[in-house]
Amino acid sequence: MNAPVFSVPDTIGAAARGLPARGGVGLKPEHFREILATAPDIGFFEIHAENYMVDGGPFHHYLGRIRERYPLSIHGVGLSIGGESPLDADHLDRLAMLLARYQPESFSEHLAWASHGDVFLNDLLPVPYHAGTLARVCDHIDQVQDRLRRRMLLENPATYVEFAASTMAETEFIAEVVRRTGCGLLLDVNNVHVACVNHHRDPYAYIDALPAEAVGQIHLAGFAQDVDAAGEPLLIDSHGAPVAQAVWDLYRHALARVGPVATLIERDNDIPALPVLLAEAHQAERLMGEALAPSIARGFPCGACA
């Protein structure tokens, strides 16, 4: 494969340019120094926004230096877009400040809720899919995009339960959110696999039902396996293992539809040595390269350039 030659990004207009169609890894404090010392060949780094909502110190010191050298994705985990509560204006302000400071190529958040009232639950909690929640989620995304003055990507969730109140399929809900708000999609292929196993659906059909042209980034991760009360498999989005073969297979399918697009290896538990993560990101790039040739021949649109 021929990965694009890396060049130092100028941060002006980074959002407009977007992330390169390459592999990236989550930025972990245990890897800060190694990244600066070894300058690994990697397409981008991703951070969780809330971890950097601190005044100063090592996190900003290292992120500033790493951001000078690499494209950056900022991934929020605390906006609670699916929440019944109104968006937290202070939190949105903090997010706007963080984005202004680091000018990331991409900003994304989750189709989930994490706060109720003033209590933060630190988990991505599920939302029923019906007209009421659709209106609320769209309203929240409108507010986010207005305040941040940029397009955000919305990530499909990994869920363990469904709601009797739902009247729409998840893909239908997401497609409608994209249509109404103009937001993009962060297609988490591991979440697709996890949710489809957990709810006995076809993950390939799930991906086919999403608007491919809206996908601006892909996430890949590992999961843990459990069973439900009936003994059926229940997968858990643990980010604690290498990407599973079933997820790589599904990723190939996603690439065939979407084209090469920035792909993150997420690892938040049992974090291995940096080269292990880099190797997974490079594997994603190899698959992108394989997907590219036939898609160009068939005149497929390039999702990353959309």
Partner: peptide
């Protein structure tokens, strides 16, 4: 709910 009608409490316990 769960697709197989299993007790959702077990699934909720993940959260």
């Amino acid at each position: 709910t769960a697709w197989n009608g299993s007790d959702p409490e077990r699934r909720f316990a993940i959260y």
